[in-house]
Each structure stands twice: as structure tokens, then as C-alpha cells.
Simulated scan of single mutants.
Amino acid sequence: MKLSLVCVGRLSLPYLRDGAEDYGGRLQRYLPMRTLELKEEKAARAEPAYLQEREGRRILDKVPDGAWVIALDERGRSYTSEGVAELLGKHMLQGTAELVFIIGGAYGLSDAVRQRADLVWSLSSLTLTHQMARLLLLEQLYRGLTILRNEPYHNR
């Protein structure tokens, strides 16, 4: 199974870049992973819904046919770390070729992206920046894989 992240925006802060690079490297020990960064839509006086729609179209263009898609959205389902491990394990056993995780931009995801998703996942009921969401996602994916392998990272 391959993991893909489709993210709107770049990681602008050094500590977020360093953390994402660290966890991305750790994840590569378990599964192949790639990250696609899409440019954020910016337009003076544009409505957030308009920006979401434009970003959404570009996001959906990057989702491969047949991929199982997980969109990160505050209105999604919440998981424990063990639940994330279970989800990953299920897809590994089922032979899912690619899991694609989508993180929208500053205004969130369009309805079209949420509708395309096979699962909508909320990392937290708190509002997170899309940059912080990426780091948290990578850490939880790593944690989930260490849980599956009974490695000591999770401490339970």
C-alpha cells in the first residue's frame, strides 16, 4: 500500500517543515509515501466558497483513479490512535493500493472534495491551521503503524 498526501499550501514555518520531514522519513520505513503541495488560491475580495471550489478542483485532479480517499475536515469522524492503526491495518490486509489523505487550505475543503472522499476524518474538534494538521496527520500515521507492529513508540 502507498500513502499520498495532497495538501494545499506549503509548510512555511521551519519547525513544521522539520517535523513533517522527520515523520515523513519515519513513515517511509513502513510504506512508500509522497506529498503533493498545491498552491493556495489567493484573490483579493474573493469569497471563501469560491476559493474552496477552485482549490477543490485542483485537489480532485491529483487524486488517482481507484484510490481510497480520506479528507481531513473538522466536521469529520474522530478516531483514537488505535482506531487509526485499525484503519491502516484494514486497508493493508484488503490490499488497498493507495490511501490518499487530503488537507485543504485556509478556508477548508469544498463540498465536492468531501463528497469524493471515502472517509472524512477530524483530527480534532479544535480549529487547526492546515500546516499544523499536516504535521499531526503524519505523526498519527506513524503512531498507527508502530501500533500495528507492536513497537514501543505508543507507550501502551
Rank of each mutant, 00 (worst) to 15 (best):
Gly89Arg: 08
Gly76Thr: 05
Leu109Pro: 05
Pro64Glu: 14
Leu36Thr: 12
Leu135Met: 03
Val8Trp: 06
Asp118Ala: 01
Ile59Asn: 10
Tyr50Asn: 13
Leu128Asn: 02
Arg58Gly: 09
Leu128Gln: 01
Asp73Ile: 02
Gly83Cys: 03
Asp118Arg: 11
Leu126Thr: 01
Ser110Ile: 04
His91Tyr: 12
Lys42Asp: 11
Val120Lys: 02
Gly95Ala: 09
Val8Leu: 09
His130Phe: 04
Ser78Asn: 13
Val120Cys: 08
Pro14Gly: 07
Ala20Pro: 07
Leu88Arg: 00
Tyr142Asp: 01
Gly89Lys: 09
Ala67His: 09
Ala117Thr: 06
Ala97Lys: 15
Met33Asp: 05
Glu139Lys: 08
Tyr107Gln: 12
Val69Asp: 11
Met33Val: 12
Glu74Tyr: 00
Leu27Asn: 08
Leu141Trp: 03
Ala106Gly: 14
Leu36Gln: 13
Ala97His: 14
Lys62Trp: 00
Tyr153Met: 08
Cys7Met: 12
Arg156Ala: 09
Trp121Val: 03
Trp68Tyr: 15
Gln94His: 14
Leu36His: 13
Leu16Asn: 14
Ala112Cys: 07
Gly108Thr: 06
Arg34Tyr: 04
Ala20Lys: 05
Lys90Cys: 10
His91Cys: 06
Leu138Lys: 00
Val120Arg: 04
Arg26Lys: 14
Leu126Lys: 10
Leu141Ile: 07
His91Gln: 14
Thr129Ala: 07
Leu3Gly: 11
Leu138Gly: 10
Ala133Trp: 01
Leu93Cys: 10
Pro48Asp: 11
Trp121Gln: 00
His154Leu: 03
Asp18Arg: 15
Arg45Gly: 13
Arg114Asn: 05
His154Val: 09
Asn155Trp: 11
Pro32Phe: 05
Ile103Gln: 01
Val113Gly: 04
Ala112Leu: 12
Arg26Gly: 00
Tyr30Ser: 13
Glu55His: 07
Val8Ser: 13
Trp68Ile: 08
Glu47Lys: 14
Ala85Glu: 06
Leu5Asn: 06
Leu123Asp: 03
Thr146Gly: 03
Arg77Phe: 04
Lys2Pro: 08
Gln131Cys: 00
Glu86Val: 01
Leu16Gln: 13
Ser124Trp: 10
Ser81Glu: 04
Thr127Ile: 03
Arg57Lys: 15
Ser122Arg: 04
Glu86Ile: 01
Leu141Met: 09
Met1His: 08
Glu82Ile: 01
Ile59Thr: 03
Arg149Cys: 01
Pro64Gly: 08
Val113Cys: 06
Gln115Ile: 09
Ala20Tyr: 00
Leu135Ala: 05
Val84Asp: 01
Glu53Asn: 12
Asp18Ile: 03
Leu38Asn: 03
